[in-house]
Design a protein around this nucleic acid. Sequence first.
DNA 1: GCCAACGTTGGC
DNA 2: GCCAACGTTGGC
Length: 152
Amino acid sequence: MNYWLMKSEPDVFSIDDLAKRRVEPWTGVRNYQARNFMKEMKLGDQVLFYHSSAEHIGVAGLMSVAREAYPDPTQFDKKSEYFDPKSTKDKPRWEMVDVQFVEKFKALVTLDQLRGEPKLTGLILLQKGTRLSVIPVSAEHFKLILKLSKHG
DNA sequence: GCCAACGTTGGC
DNA sequence: GCCAACGTTGGC
């Protein structure tokens, strides 16, 4: 079992949206490193849902991988903001996974909380200049963040 | 292959 | 809205 964290702007797609949808394809990742991490994801892997660029920033809940990586159809859709003219159906550039709702945390685990936790140094999310929207999380870090979600 | 210009992310 | 820190693009 591997652990991950994925970012989304809640104005675009939030943990509440996922709670309603139950399962959702994670479209629109257009960064090679982030794509490569998604290709490593296995069915059932646990994924922290992070709200970025919002009034309240932090980890909002938990989801799991419901389908392993396959081509992101929005890359072929000229009307989509994620359209990529250099991608072909023979050789798709971009892939995505489907994620499944697991839980919404009772309280957001805020970015300040994460930064204030000495044991979380090394978490890629907290490294300066890291803008990756899909990142791996160690089992220890994952457990600690879950604990924070329950006990503050 | 180099690198300047440009675009994007995301916290503040 | 600002801007630091990246990633990508394209001319050479």
